[in-house]
């Protein structure tokens, strides 16, 4: 199980909380794009998150480009659990959120 940095854990937590694409994650985590996107690549490379493209037809129907969505894998959930024990603040933030945890 890879050890997560606080930033990576925060991004993972954001995805798990329901913020599923890059811009949304940046907005909620308050991190710059230069940090978020490389972190997303790294998390995906470690198998903690998985990405998938939105269906073209659905995006076309709404006259917008398709989005790339991220979701936390089982390994990611485990890693987040370990990180939560390590970063107390993260755990408290996660518990404090009003959004539904997926």
């Amino acid at each position: 199980m890879p050890s997560l940095s606080f930033t990576a854990a925060l991004i993972l937590q954001a995805i798990r909380t329901g913020y599923r694409y890059g811009f949304d994650i940046m907005e909620t985590a308050g991190l710059p794009s230069g940090t978020v996107y490389p972190a997303l690549r790294r998390l995906e490379q470690q198998g903690l998150i998985q990405s998938s493209w939105e269906e073209e037809a659905r995006a076309a129907a709404e006259q917008r480009p398709p989005r790339k969505y991220y979701r936390v894998t089982n390994d990611g959930k485990e890693a987040l659990k370990v990180a939560g024990e390590r970063y107390g603040l993260l755990q408290r933030l996660a518990k404090g959120t009003k959004l539904e945890v997926r």
Binding site: M26, P32, S33, G34, T35, V36, Y37, P38, R41
Partner: peptide
């Protein structure tokens, strides 16, 4: 614009992760 400049960091990660 700052967000777009962040694409360089991401691109560099892809090249030299």
């Amino acid at each position: 614009m700052r967000h777009c400049w962040g694409s360089f960091a991401d691109a560099l990660w892809h090249r030299f992760n």
